[in-house]
């Protein structure tokens, strides 16, 4: 299991990732993910798949409809749908 982190540490790590140019509709905070695969199994558009690290990754970002089903069903609050960038 991943190392325990506090919410503040999670927040800082996520913000850091965004600063470094993370630019996908769905974000997975891996230290909290327990690899249950629920998000992958029930994504209505099949945009997620399990990576080699047994954590979900966004394989088909263009198909994502931001329905938030992955976010609502994640038991570990480890995945969420990002706001759309105002361009």
């Amino acid at each position: 299991m991943a190392k325990n982190t506090t919410v503040e540490e999670a927040r800082a790590a996520i913000e850091q990732d965004f600063k470094q140019g993370y630019d996908l509709p769905v974000y997975v905070y891996k230290p909290w993910c327990k690899s249950c695969e629920i998000c992958v199994a029930f994504c209505p558009k099949q945009v997620l798949e399990m990576g080699e690290d047994r954590k979900p990754r966004l394989a088909r970002p263009r198909d994502c409809i931001r329905c938030r089903q992955c976010e609502l069903r994640c038991p570990d609050l480890a995945i969420f749908v990002c706001e759309e960038k105002a361009k």
Binding site: T6, V7, Y29, W32, D76, L77, F80
Partner: peptide
Amino acid sequence: KIHPAYEMLRPDKNFP
């Protein structure tokens, strides 16, 4: 750019 639930979690409590 953060999970909306995080603001309701204890900031100093370890997760997962």
